[in-house]
């Protein structure tokens, strides 16, 4: 089961002839993911490291039946790359690229909503279902199969948490990195819903950050719809108002969106929160 991704998912990589695209396409394949090929406009018909290359997503989908894509193209071209995946009817679109203009991201989200694609990202590490498959850049040596669902706004922080979970013998059902940008289709709420419905997920870890109101919306959703235990961590207590900490999403909005207010809101709906990520495994045991 798991969510969004399993060993049967057929993945293409957009930007597969680029350095990052190829590097991670190989890593995905090495992990057992069905990477059925890639797309680089103008290089259709060629082959690279055993991956077939097409000029467009539509052609790749027609030839392979791919139902997921991982996008590694530069920010300038991300909008058209995402559009062509959505237009080709790809169910799961994972947008790794960071630094995409807000207007472009909003246009992509709107198109994905309209055509029914699930969009993960942008500016995200992707997702992994341990023991089955991964789309994106999450390291595979730090995960192990199990029953903890992990959803996170951050990249490397997630890796730290995954490693600590695995070391403590707590495997994961699926880990979804939803990305650090404020505008996105798939946020905490959507992933929490999937974890709640997934019989293989028993407990949930949610890693938030300062800024925006995604954690507050998640709290509202948890209160009404989530019966599985949720452990939360919010990064950015030290943030100064108004400055961003690397992620566009991490903007403190006046007194709201601070780590303290988010922690309070989550605690009020029964989410156990921690000050240090090393405390997470104990709360899940």
């Amino acid at each position: 089961m798991a969510i969004l991704l399993n060993k049967d998912t057929k993945v293409i990589v957009q930007g597969i002839t680029g350095f990052q695209g190829l590097f991670h396409a190989k890593k995905m394949r090495d992990y057992g993911t069905q990477v059925v090929g890639g797309v680089t406009p103008g290089k259709g018909g060629t082959e690279i490291e055993g991956f077939k290359v097409w000029d467009s997503v539509a052609e790749a989908v027609e030839a392979t039946g791919a139902n997921a894509t991982c996008i590694f193209v530069p920010a300038k071209f991300a909008k058209s790359a995402a559009y062509e995946a959505i237009d080709a009817g790809v169910e799961l679109v994972v947008l790794i690229t960071e630094g995409i203009p807000k207007i472009d991201t909003m246009s992509i989200v709107k198109r994905a909503n309209k055509k029914g694609s699930t969009l993960i990202g942008p500016n995200c590490p992707g997702l992994i279902t341990p023991g089955q498959a991964k789309i994106g850049i999450i390291p595979t040596n730090i995960v192990k199969p199990g029953k903890i669902g992990v959803v996170s706004r951050s990249g490397t922080l997630t890796y730290e948490v995954l490693e600590q979970l695995s070391n403590a013998g707590l495997g994961q059902s699926t880990c979804v990195g939803i990305g650090g940008d404020p505008y996105k289709q798939t946020n905490f709420v959507q992933v929490l819903k999937l974890f709640q419905e997934d019989p293989e997920t028993e407990k949930i870890v949610m890693l938030g950050e300062i800024g925006g109101n995604a954690e507050e919306l998640a709290a509202e959703f948890i209160k009404e719809h989530v019966t599985k235990p949720v452990v939360g961590y919010i990064a950015g207590k030290t943030a100064k108002p108004g400055k961003t900490m690397g992620h566009a999403g991490a903007i403190i909005q006046g007194g709201k969106g601070t780590a303290d207010s988010k922690i309070k809101t989550l605690e009020s709906v029964g989410v156990k929160t921690v000050n240090r990520i090393s405390e997470i495994p104990d709360l899940l045991k």
């Binding site: 300062i210 990064a235 690397g246 991490a250």
Partner: peptide, 8 residues
């Protein structure tokens, strides 16, 4: 190495 990690 990474923004979330930096914040943490």
């Amino acid at each position: 190495c990474g923004a979330g990690m930096g914040m943490a």
